[in-house]
């Protein structure tokens, strides 16, 4: 009988240790302690059965019971310690230390701006076309109604390859090339590099433009206003005011400059807008019938509008860049901000 009790006590101890082994929260261990070592616990319950054990055997059984009790208690203690160590290890993680980063590349702000603009026009149904950056005088000027010996040519300082070949001064030559290739309807935007013989605080000899052209039956000046309003509202913000004012370009008639409410001062006047509250961002107009003649379109049949936006200009406004030359310095500290 005592052997049986001793055996059962040891069994109980092993069982408890096994459960302890698997336990991994403080609550589980506490439950285990109460279950086995509590006042009404199993081991204590066994001790109560001591009454049924003869006097001379009591010490031996007591010894076993004590050993089971102390073994379990110390196992619980060390398990609890281990748990709290693990807990401590968890809190010593410093989440404020920088993570393991990979070097990221940065797209040039010109590319970002250009893509953003093209996306807006693509959503409106425009195709994209590109063309040569070195152009013949015919496409760059003549067919756009800049006759030779006309003062309108003074509007653009030109870099020449020879008398008949220039670095394109705008992306407009692609208007002609596009219309030569296809019949209306034409919905096209033309992004690309352009060049002028100009270099100062507000000009770089190379810059970027997005040109747009829509030609179809019944296109109106109102449509020109509509498309450019959508563009400005999507590119800047839906509450950006814009105004159209008369201007002159040889290849459009009527022509319009488009101003937007100054994005810096919101119209109250600042250095950026020259205290006018308005910023000129693009030129536009209804396609001049002379231009249609060059591409065999009938101005009685179709009408259209065209516009040209300087990318650097709108990128500067969008990102608050105050120095044009930063675009072509390719200073990584600048590029990294985009």
């Amino acid at each position: 009988m005592p052997e049986d009790i001793k055996e059962k006590l040891s069994e109980l101890g092993r069982e408890a240790l096994e459960i302890l082994e698997k336990a991994d929260t403080v609550a589980e261990i506490e439950n285990l302690r109460i279950k086995y070592l509590g006042k009404k616990g199993l081991v204590t319950g066994f001790m109560r059965q001591m009454g049924s054990v003869s006097a001379e055997e009591r010490p031996a059984v007591g010894q076993v019971a004590n050993r089971v009790k102390t073994d379990l208690a110390s196992a619980i203690k060390s398990k609890l310690e281990a748990l709290s160590d693990a807990e401590e290890a968890k809190t010593s993680l410093d989440v404020t230390l920088p993570g393991r980063r990979h070097r990221r590349g940065h797209r040039h702000p010109i590319t970002r701006t250009l893509n953003e603009m093209c996306d807006i026009f693509i959503r409106m149904g425009f195709d994209i076309a590109e063309g040569p950056e070195v152009e013949s005088d015919y496409y760059n000027f003549e067919a756009l109604n800049f006759p030779k010996d006309h003062p309108a040519r003074d509007m653009q300082d030109t870099l020449y390859i020879n008398d008949n070949v220039v670095l394109r001064t705008h992306t407009s030559p692609m208007q002609i090339r596009t219309m030569e290739k296809k019949k209306p309807p034409v919905w096209v935007v033309i992004p690309g590099k352009t060049y002028r013989r100009d270099s100062d605080v507000s000009h770089t000899p190379m810059f970027h433009q997005v040109e747009g052209l829509v030609v179809d039956k019944g296109i109106t000046f109102g449509d020109l206003k509509g498309v450019l309003t959508v563009f400005v509202h999507q590119f800047f913000s839906p509450d950006t005011p814009l105004r159209f004012r008369p201007s002159f370009f040889p290849f459009t008639e009527p022509s319009a400059e488009v101003d937007i409410g100054c994005v810096i001062c919101h119209g109250s006047g600042c250095r950026t807008c020259g205290y006018k509250g308005w910023l000129e961002i693009l030129g536009s107009g209804m396609v001049d019938p002379e231009v249609f003649k060059f591409v065999d379109y009938d101005p009685q049949e179709v009408s259209g509008f065209a516009f040209g936006v300087g990318i650097e200009r709108v990128a500067m406004l969008k990102y608050g860049i105050d120095d044009l030359r930063l675009f072509f310095d390719n200073d990584l500290r600048f590029l990294k901000q985009f």
């Binding site: 990979h102 070097r103 990221r104 590349g105 940065h106 797209r107 040039h108 010109i110 590319t111 950056e133 670095l167 590099k193 060049y195 000899p205 190379m206 675009f327 072509f328 390719n330 990584l332 590029l335 990294k336």
Partner: peptide
């Protein structure tokens, strides 16, 4: 860009 290179735009001339 994904490989960690940043984009430069230089003059064509």
């Amino acid at each position: 860009e994904g490989l960690g290179l940043s984009e430069a735009i230089s003059y064509s001339f």
